[in-house]
Write a protein that binds this DNA or RNA. Sequence first.
DNA 1: CTCCTTGTTGCATACGTATGTCTATAATAA
DNA 2: TTATTATAGACATACGTATGCAACAAGGAG
Lengths: 331, 331
Amino acid sequence: MTVTSRDVAQLAGVSQPTVSRALRDDPRVSEATKVRVRQAAARLGYVPSDVGRALSSGRTRRIGLLLTDLENQFYPHIIAPAFHQLESLGYQLMLHTEAADNDVVAERLISNGLDGVLLATSTIDSVVPLRLRDRGLPFAYFNRTSTAVHADSAVVNPLRGMDEAAAALIECGHRRIAAILGPANTSTAINRENALREALAHHGVSIPAHYVHRGPFDTATGQAGTQRFLEMAEPPTAIICGNDVVAFGALNAARSAGVDVPGDVSIVGFDDLPSAAWPIIRLTTIAYDLDAMVRRAVELLVDRIENPQRPVEESAFESRLVMRDTLGHIR
Amino acid sequence: MTVTSRDVAQLAGVSQPTVSRALRDDPRVSEATKVRVRQAAARLGYVPSDVGRALSSGRTRRIGLLLTDLENQFYPHIIAPAFHQLESLGYQLMLHTEAADNDVVAERLISNGLDGVLLATSTIDSVVPLRLRDRGLPFAYFNRTSTAVHADSAVVNPLRGMDEAAAALIECGHRRIAAILGPANTSTAINRENALREALAHHGVSIPAHYVHRGPFDTATGQAGTQRFLEMAEPPTAIICGNDVVAFGALNAARSAGVDVPGDVSIVGFDDLPSAAWPIIRLTTIAYDLDAMVRRAVELLVDRIENPQRPVEESAFESRLVMRDTLGHIR
DNA sequence: CTCCTTGTTGCATACGTATGTCTATAATAA
DNA sequence: TTATTATAGACATACGTATGCAACAAGGAG
C-alpha cells in the first residue's frame, strides 16, 4: 500500500539513497537524475515518511506545547501564533496537557521524540523542566517561568501596566481595591501581584487580605471571587483581575448580581484578548504584544534546538493600560 | 545520551526483544524476568521511543485534526474534548490547518504517518477526503461532510432547532427576517440554510436575497452582515446567524450602531458555546451536545482504524432552541 | 524411554530514510 | 599518454522497536 523511496528508486533506475538525495535537492545528484527521480516519485504518488526520516535523522521537527486547560479562552491565542510561526520554520506543533503526575507528562514529552518543548503553564515547583533538562531536551518558558531551571523565556513585564492601572484607579477615586489573582505557585500570578502591590503602594494604598481571592486563571475564579466581594458589608469599588478570562467571570458575576460596571464596581483585566475589545464587552485591561511574545518564545526555542550553546535569553515584554469602559469614577 | 531498549537489555542480562515484550507486559515473558527488566529500565531512566515503535509497528497512535482558522472561538470546544477522548483511548492529537493548496495539506497528513484524520472543516469540494481515501488513511467527518467521499461522520441535524427558532420568531411578531450564513461550499451552511428556509416556509415567511449575508464563520462576518442590514431603509427585525461566533459579531455591530437587542433587532445564534450563556451575553441560540458529538467522531474514527471493514456510520445530533435574552417581541 | 507440550528466551529481520565511504566514470592538467 | 581531480552514484549501515520463528529446557503422558 505505501510507496517507499525504494519503489521510486527502482522505477527511476537509481539507488534508494539517490532518491533521498534527489528529492531533497542535494547538490551531489545531477540535474538529469533529479528530474528522473521526481518524475518517478510523482508517478507513484510517493510521499516521504516522517517516521522513517525521524528515526534516521534523529529529529522529528516537531515541538510540544504544554498547556493545562485546553478549554480556556486564553489558549487559542497562544496556539494559533505558535502554530503558524512553527510552520514557517518547518516545524509541527503537538499539544500536550499537564496531568496530575508531572513525571508522566515528562515521560510523554520525551517518548514523543520532540525536538523541543514550549512550557506555557509551568508552576514554579514543576519537575518537568528538571526532567527535560536531564534528558537534554531543549525547552523554553512561555508566559511563566520556573526558578528550578534557568532557560530561555518570553514573559510579560507587568510593572508599567500595573503602574498605569494603579494611577488610573487612584485618579478615579478608588481606595478599596480588590484583586483576583492566579495560583500562588505560578510566576505569572506572583509577578502581577507584586507589581500591583508596589504600584498601589506608591499611592499609599494597600490590598487587605480579605480583598484577595486566588484561583486558576478561568472565568469560574473571576465569578466566585467577585461574588464573594460583592456580598461583603463593605465591598471593594474596584477589582483587578489576574487576566482577562478571570475578568470576564467578574463581569458575569457583577451582571448576575445586578451591579453596574463601572458605576458600582470597576473591573480591570490583563492580556487584552481580542474579545476584550468587543463593543459588548469593552474591558479596561492591561495589554502587551501577545503575538510577538509567542513568536519570540518559538524563535528562542527553535534557535536553541539548532544552536544549543547560545547563552540563555530572557525576553520581557512591556505592558500598558488600555482604557475602555469597565473602569470609571467612583460614585 | 538516549537510553535504548538495548541498554536495558544489557543491564538486565536479556535480549532486546525480551525487553520490548517485558515492558509491554507480554504474557510470553516470565514474571521474574519482567521484574528484572523493569528494574533495569527504571535504573537507566529508559523511555521507549515512539518513533522507533511507529516505524516498527506501522502505527503512530496519533490522529490529526484538520481545522481552518485556529483563532476561532469555536475550535477550543472541539480541540479539548477531542484531545481528552483520544487520550483516554491511547491516542495523541496533532493539529493541522487547511492551506491554500489542498494537495499540500493532504500530503502533510499522509507523510505524518497519522493513523487517522478528523476532518472538521472540509468544504464540499475539498480534495482532501479523496486523497485520504486513495491512501487508505482512515478519516471521519466532524460537523461538516463532503459529498465526494462517503465516510463516518458526526454532524448536527439543524431541523428541530430551526423549527423552534422559526416558531419563536413568528410568535414574537417577526416577519422581516435576515440570515448571516456560512460559506456556500460547506455542508454546515447549506444544511442550516435549508432547515431555516423550510422552517420559515411553514409560517409563510421567506428570506429575500438582500436579507442574506454570507461569509466565513467568524465575528467579522457577523459584524459586517449586521452592519449592512442595519443601514438598510427597511432593516430586518431579526437576524439568524450561522453560528454563535457570527452572532457575537452581530451583537457587537448592533452595540456599535447603538441599536438595542432585542428591542430593535433580535439575534439568534447556533452552537450554544459556553460563552453564549454568560450573563453579559445571554445569546438566544440553537443548542446541541457538542461534546458528545466530538466524542462520537473520535470514537467512530478510532473504531474505523481498528476495524476497517465496519460499514460507514453517520451520526446526527438533535438540536433545540435555547431561549435567552437576544430574541424578543417586535416593538 | 521417547514423544509431545508448555513455557521462556534468543535470533533474525523488518519498518523507511539519511549519511559516510567507496567506486567508477569523465574531465582536466601535465 | 598518464596522472590527477572532480563528479555522480552505489553500497553499507544506522536509527529504536516489534514480531515471526527457532531453540531450548522442563515436565508430563504414553
